[in-house]
Structure formats: structure tokens, C-alpha cells
Write a protein that binds this DNA or RNA. Structure first.
Lengths: 203, 203
DNA sequence: CAAAAGAAAGTAATTGATTGCTTTCTAGTG
DNA sequence: CACTAGAAAGCAATCAATTACTTTCTTTTG
């Protein structure tokens, strides 16, 4: 059979591993993911995995870095190029939910990492990404306030918490039901309530 | 020393264990909690723990049951006896956050359990509690709508998701910063934005 | 009402399974 | 030929659970 395809470049193996871990996190508890299970997912022996990662902690760090980059990169960038800051905030919200729907393992991975109280590398990566992401939200809210799109007396910090909470609420809700489709369908409706909470109540 | 207190009733040991696990979950990852660590926390040998619990899974089920009871019992009850349904919703929110602040292990435990995709007993207990709790929120929103306290066109299901998300957002935020005090301080401010999002926008 | 009997609660040691990681050796690749 | 990628086996550590046995509390009975 030609399906035996050994001797794949280490770089490729690394990205394949990250992709596999994200996928596996969508199916089972990240905390119970063994190196054997990860290796099996990419058709590799358990020991050979350590030819591409010095240890498991570094592997997780790579995975965390991928998630962090999606968050602070592609997703945060969807806020750009809109007619108004609030429209950007809306687009970013929906892009974030869309990302979660297509990668259910991502939020599970993040929640799992945040459980660890020690200052592991992967946890730091996730935390930094969240800080940057939060900053982006706050920035959008501030400019929206300056543009008169939101209440002048709005507590932007609290609004950022609620914004993130809305996404986390949808993610957890999907985690409970095991159904991602309903979360995606509920997303714009939840977003509308949030926007109603921060908008100028005039007219 | 008289601190040696052997031969304690199994009932007492069980409740002591549940209490200890909740406390330990506030300090470390629930997934890494070994039976040895739990036993040590209540001054017991690892093997003796199985005199009071048939296995670890049942132990977790007991802990989950305690959290579920707090949620659907004491916390949900704080909504009663208020001048208006919205005032009840507000009180319940703050009581919930207060509970999380005093028991940081509770949300971590719940998030940890929800990670497990298999239908474990502990997971079912948590899921049922959340369903009941969600129902209580929906009920309060409906009566508030009937009383004209919230918009008549409000999507109550989406509002319930956002309500829970707000709490989860605060919990995760506290998990990241490691500081519960700031979450408690931010709670009423987040709540105000949520309430602004569902309230009748008149006057 | 004491003493024997038994149930309940405890310890220390051990079990088998699983974990992350290392070692040894083999086989393809540039 | 040197180097990288891989399999296969083995390593020490850790885990939940069980074992064999001891100690304390409770209950029955002569």
C-alpha cells in the first residue's frame, strides 16, 4: 500500500500535530489527552512524537500559540474596515463565534489551560492573547463612545467583560448541549441584547 | 496532641471530603486532584478514602451534587420575595457571584466536569442543575416581561444565555487574574449593562 | 451490666494499568 | 555517508483501587 508515508518533515509533523490536538480537544477532555493518543491521530508511534517536540509541555505551548494567533490575528482583524466601530465590534463577535463553531476544541483547550494555577508557558500564551484581545475590545468601545455610538457614561471595562462573557456563555452552552449549531444560531440574538445594553438609549 | 481525631463517622467523612475537594479545586486543577491529595487534606490515608466512597467517580458525583444543590437551592431562592421580578433577577445574580467568590473551586469544578464528553454521573448532575437554573432565569424574565419591566420583544432565551455568560465571564476573568475581589467589584457594573440591554428603553 | 461478638473505620503495603519520556536500533533522504 | 525520521521496547513515576490486618465503636446476650 502507498498509504504508508513515513519520513515526513519535522515542520510538517509539528503543524499536523497542532491541528490534530485541536481536533481531538473537540472530542475529548484536553486534560486526558495522552501523547500516545496524539501520536496515533497522526499515524505515528508514541516515541517518535518526541522527535518533533522536546516534551509534552512544549507541544501544548505550540497548540496554545496557534489558538492565540487566531484570536489576536485573524479574528481581531475582522473589526477593521467597517463603517463604524460598533459594526466592527459586531463583525468581530460573529467571527469569534464562527471560529469556535469550526474549532470546538479551541475554547475547551483555553478553559483547560486556565484551570492550571501554575505559571506554565501555555497558560501564559493564552493569558497574553486574552489581554491583547480585551484591549482590542476596549479600544473599539472607546472609539465607539467618541463617535457617539454608545452611551457616554458606559463602563467600558465592564462592557468588555460582558462581551467576552457572552462568547464564553455561548461556548459553554454549546459544551453542555454538545451542539454547536444552536450556539451559532443564538449568537446574533445574544449580540443584539449586548449591543442594546451599551447603545445610546435616545430617539 | 489531641489533633489526632480518628474513627469519624462515614457521613461526616463524606461531607468533610466534599468540602475539602471544593476548597482544593480553588487552589489547583481539578483534573490533577489525586485521591492521595484529597485524603491528605482530611487527614486520612489514601486507602481509607474508599471506606467512604466506592470509587473516585462517585466521590466526584457527591461533590457535583453539592454544587448543584447550592445553585438550584440557596442561590435560586434569593430571587424570591422581591418587589419586582427584575429585582429578584438582580439579587440572584449578585448572590451567584458572591457564591463564586466564596467558593472559587465551584466554577472550576463545573468547567472541569463539562470538559468530559462522556456521560459521567457528575456531568449529568451539573447539566441538570444548569437546566433548572436556566429555567428559573427564563421564568423571571417572562414574568418581568408580563409586568412591563423588560422589552416586550425581548428574546428571553438569548437573554438567559447572556445572563449566564455574564457570570461565566466574571468567573473566567477571575480565573485569569487569580483575583476574586476584582470580579466581585465588577459584578454590579456588568449586571447594569445586562439590565440596560433587556429593559424597556422608554422615558 | 459487663463481656463477647460484630460492624465500622483505620493503616500500610501492594496491585495492575497508564503516564511522559528515553534508549536502542533501523531505514529512508539529501 | 551523514542526518533525519521512525519503530519498538523499556524506564521510573504516578494513579486508583485492593489487600491483609489492626483498632475503635456499637450492639447483643448470659
Amino acid at each position: 500500500m502507498s498509504d504508508t508515508r513515513p519520513y515526513i518533515r519535522s515542520e510538517q509533523r509539528q503543524s499536523d500535530t497542532v491541528e490534530a490536538v485541536i481536533r481531538l480537544c473537540g472530542e475529548r477532555d484536553p486534560a486526558t489527552l495522552s501523547t500516545a493518543a496524539i501520536a496515533e491521530a497522526i499515524n505515528l508511534s508514541q516515541g517518535a512524537l518526541f522527535k518533533h517536540f522536546p516534551n509534552k509541555k512544549t507541544l501544548w505551548e505550540s497548540v496554545a500559540r496557534w489558538v492565540a494567533q487566531q484570536l489576536t490575528g485573524r479574528i481581531a482583524a475582522t473589526a477593521d474596515g467597517h463603517s463604524s466601530p460598533l459594526a466592527g465590534l459586531r463583525a468581530m463577535f460573529l467571527a469569534h463565534v464562527d471560529f469556535i463553531v469550526r474549532h470546538p476544541g479551541a475554547p475547551r483547550l483555553m478553559l483547560g489551560e486556565l484551570q492550571k494555577p501554575d505559571q506554565s508557558a501555555a497558560r501564559t500564551v493564552i493569558m497574553n492573547a486574552m489581554t491583547i484581545y480585551r484591549g482590542r475590545i476596549g479600544q473599539l468601545l472607546e472609539t465607539a463612545m467618541a463617535a457617539g455610538e454608545v452611551r457616554a457614561d458606559l463602563d467600558t471595562d465592564a462592557a468588555a467583560v460582558l462581551y467576552l462573557g457572552a462568547i464564553q456563555g455561548l461556548a459553554v452552552q454549546a459544551l453542555v448541549s454538545g451542539d454547536m449549531a444552536t450556539a451559532a444560531q443564538a449568537a446574533p440574538r445574544v449580540l443584539d441584547i449586548f449591543l442594546a445594553g451599551i447603545r445610546e438609549p435616545q430617539s
